[in-house]
Amino acid sequence: MTRLRGRGISAVNYPTGMNLGGDPSQALIHATTTGNFVVTLSSVDLGQGLRTIMTQIAAEVLGVPPESVIIDTADTDTGPHCMGTFASRATHRIGNAIIMAATEARNALLDVAGEELEVAAADLETDGDGRIAVKGVPGKSISVLDAALAAHFKYGRTISGRGIYLKPRSYPDFETGAMDPDSCQAHACTIAEVEVDTETGEVRVLKLTSAYEIGRALNPMMVEQQIVGGSWMGMSHALYETTEPYYPDRAHGPVDFAEYLMPGPADIPQYDAVILERPSASGPFGAKGIGEMTANSPIPAIANAIFDACGVRIDELPITPEKLLRALDAAAVAPRR
């Protein structure tokens, strides 16, 4: 039995969002009588944490605590339009829509607070903790709750805001083919270290080291979750997962969890990642999308590491022991290209 070690590198540019026929998303915000702010979206949280990010963005712009933001998502019959959660677009598109809606709602809130305190709205500031005070006069203040009550019961006004972010459709230039299909690009580099068993054809990923440049990490802990989970998923695509192992033949396709291969807790590599921040001009607080690229970048790195380890280049996923052994056999017969 021979175990060969190898190392491979990949570099990825990943677009945030898509071109489509124009790519809009909307957000609507209104205050309740209790001074909570409801953010109505048609976007879906797939588990990546969209609700958390949208709460952070709304709270930051409104100037209220995150606990008083209620995210109401995903009734596409009644909610404002959203293209959807895909193309690593949600933080960018919906985040920008929320910034616009929250800015309008904040202005409405400060107008009411200004009337109650008999000062100009421009002289007010929020403390992020549920109070609105006259700048430089912290003693002269009103709670967000009292402002919301006054808006409803005294002035007959809504504290609300409308937001939309549209990435306009970009047509390719007829002469050059140049176009602007996305809003910004995130970047990644992954180094994979693998061990190939040339007798069994099995590949073990020992370590995945990545650097991700994502504009701004709005929630660093969740960014790390995406990177670690994505590293696993990339490894899974590189070495395990398929519904048609002999594509286009459907034979031996898995039908349940027992047959659909994925790496389990005993098969994981050491994960290591650094986050780099180069704020994007169009992103909410400079953020770009990180979602999908985390599962992409490990794949070519692992394929390259296998080549480095044993000199065979497999260009069909997943790189199963069977494919690897056949390629090793072929390489032993034919001289290497």
Binding site: G47, Q225, V228, G230, S231, W232, P265, I268
Partner: peptide, 20 residues
């Protein structure tokens, strides 16, 4: 022992390391 105890449980999101 932790890896062994979790080996019958599938997770699609976390990459298992944070769970361990």
């Amino acid at each position: 022992a932790v890896v062994e105890a979790l080996s019958g449980n599938v997770c699609r999101c976390t990459g298992y390391e944070p769970i361990i």
